[in-house]
Design a protein around this nucleic acid. Structure first.
Lengths: 204, 204
DNA sequence: CAATGTGAACAGCTTCACAGCC
DNA sequence: GGCTGTGAAGCTGTTCACATTG
């Protein structure tokens, strides 16, 4: 396909494909058609074909997509082919839950550092990691950690984001219910549980 | 404006507007223009005007939107003008974090019940609520609880969703990294933290 | 024959431009 | 003058239809 800008929506779906393909791989299936994959994800087959075709021709006509190598291609596209280290900011209840969250490993994420500002928590363990003082985020640059997960109250989130950006962080997953202002070169994805819940009664 | 289908994207932004207006109200400002609101939310002014205009003409030309009454209108639109009771399924780390999450109250949500399947947890407290056995979800119908937050492992999520639907639940916020199959009359919103994190390296 | 890859049609959402009102 | 409300234009993303290939 001749070059066209890849839609953000396509990028957003790539992790879905990767997770589904990982499951299919575990089940021992070697190839999968766009129809089968679409059924699992409740999408339409042409959507999947078009999405994948933005990055090349991975499939075989008459057969489908090879499960293992397509998954690997997606990992390469998303830069998940190398393990990604992430810092977790906030060792409260939400931070603790995230540290234990099993879903990250499929994508090769490793929570390599945990920070908090509560002196009582510093030095304690969260899983196998030691909680460090928030001031130590400046060391992220040297430790080659470019990703951060913000699990702290809204009031502290912007100031903390500023520090993270200064420490060379390039991507932030923000779990506080607030908007973060960062330089354009830094990518922020926000998850706001209350806002997600907020639309439900409308549809009920 | 003559009737047109209201875009899902518009609905998705309404809770953003409501949260922002609540903050503006606290700051004591009485009216706000689409430009000021757009600046806070990093949207464009016409977007906000069009979104609100789907539901009527709330603003005053030359002045802007009255903060308090527009917020109240949005609550009515989203059915958040009456307190919404929700059940929390799963009293693990994530469930505990959600029970303590301060963001829900702005929208009038009240976590009115907590369930778990671990006998060791039944009867214990989580905040001011007593953890009930998962079998008690059948009582949600009688307790007029129509919303549920699923904070349990993926493997158990579908079976649990089936039970919730049978118990009359009409909306589910799913935090497990899996797709849920439910009847069309039931609305599911899923939050998958790993998938959200999964796109970040691509943009970095 | 089954299933991909893709230009073209289509649908949905965003942005513009400006009329209308305070 | 400032700001809303809105039809129309523009853009982005989805779906279709089918040529193409193993």
């Amino acid at each position: 396909m001749k070059y066209r800008k890849i839609p953000d929506e396509t990028i957003r779906r790539m992790p879905m494909y990767l997770r589904a393909l990982s499951l299919v791989e575990q089940e021992g299936q070697q190839t999968i058609s766009s129809r089968q994959l679409a059924e699992r994800l409740h999408l339409k087959p042409p959507q999947i074909r078009k999405d994948l075709s933005y990055f090349g021709a991975f499939g075989t006509r008459g057969i489908g997509y090879p499960v293992v190598s397509t998954a690997q291609q997606i990992r390469t596209i998303l830069r998940l082919d190398v393990p990604q280290k992430a810092a977790l900011i906030g060792a409260g209840q939400l931070g603790t839950a995230i540290a234990a969250y099993p879903g990250f490993s499929v994508f090769g994420f490793d929570i390599a550092a945990v920070f908090d500002n509560d002196p009582a928590k510093i030095g304690k363990h969260i899983g196998r990691r030691v909680i460090e003082h928030i001031d130590a985020v400046d060391s992220l640059e040297d430790r080659a950690i470019r990703l951060a997960i913000l699990a702290i109250p809204s009031e502290a989130a912007q100031a903390c984001a500023d520090r993270l950006v200064r420490a060379g962080v390039k991507g932030i997953l923000n779990l506080a219910p607030c908007y973060l202002v960062v330089p354009k070169r830094v990518k922020v994805v926000s998850i706001d549980m209350a806002m997600a819940l907020g639309v439900l009664p409308y549809y009920m």
